[in-house]
Amino acid sequence: MSPEESIPGARGCAVLPVRSGDAALLRSLRSTVGEGVVHSVFSRVVNLLTPQDRLIALAVRGAGHAPRTLTADVTDWTGYGIEAGRRVRFARGSLTLELPHKRLRLTLDGARLWCPDTPSLAHLAPAELAAAAAHLDRLNRAHGALGGMLGATPGAGPMEAAVATALAKGRTGFTAAVPTGDPARIRTAVLSLLGLGPGLTPAGDDFLTGAALVAALPGSALAAFVPVLKDVLDAHPGRTTDLSLATLREAADGRARAELLDLLRLLAERAAPRQLDVPVRKVLAAGHTSGSDTLSGLTAGLHLEEELRGSL
């Protein structure tokens, strides 16, 4: 354990203050009591399951704000000895992780609150939406990673190529289904993408996350998509990974990583195209293809908004 990052507390227990976190999560943790478990451990994030089996994340400093995420003043979780499957005790105002030889208590008092601010694009004209979508698409194709929604990498093997083909087919089906407003067609389209792709958040899910975020914004014309997505997630939680399921559920409520919301806010403020370059690159920096796949979904959502508003 990194001694400068933890404050010695009771014998065999180190104390680490949580610096900031999702306001809604902090509110709910203040009344959560019981036993949870460490779900998965990465260098920059530790995922926990709460006593209610809800997935939450402990992120390192600088990882950026996100729904269901707390940020602690550490740079890397690797040296802490945290292992998947270990018990986590939730008490009012703290959560304590059982480590091999000691405990690590994270205290919530004094944590700064992050309240995701969901903008609205309802005031934008169809032509403005189309221009924004085209610009984002250009940036994505210029700087995004291949291997997901942007297509297979050159020289890809048959498996990656088959996933890329299925993703392209899924996108086509999705963009055709949503404008119809037909729940059955939308449901089929969602199921054709859900869980598709090799990563921890499969590319098909990331695409749906981007589209769901647009659909969940106040005044969106894609309103029919969100309830269908929520129904599918409730009916088929095992069709994708826990992490992806949590991300999709949040997106369906208009909640997403700060970088995505910042980008949408700039669109709402009619920012000049050049002002979008840096925020887009921040979005693209997520995961291997996750950022690019989410941006593909967001772009598809904007195109659908334009199409549906134009048809009003």
């Binding site: 299925a166 859900l194 098909g204 994708t240």
Partner: peptide, 12 residues
């Protein structure tokens, strides 16, 4: 090929 064992990946 490495991938999470989702239904869609198994379908591929």
């Amino acid at each position: 090929f490495t991938a999470m064992g989702t239904e869609m990946n198994k379908g591929v």
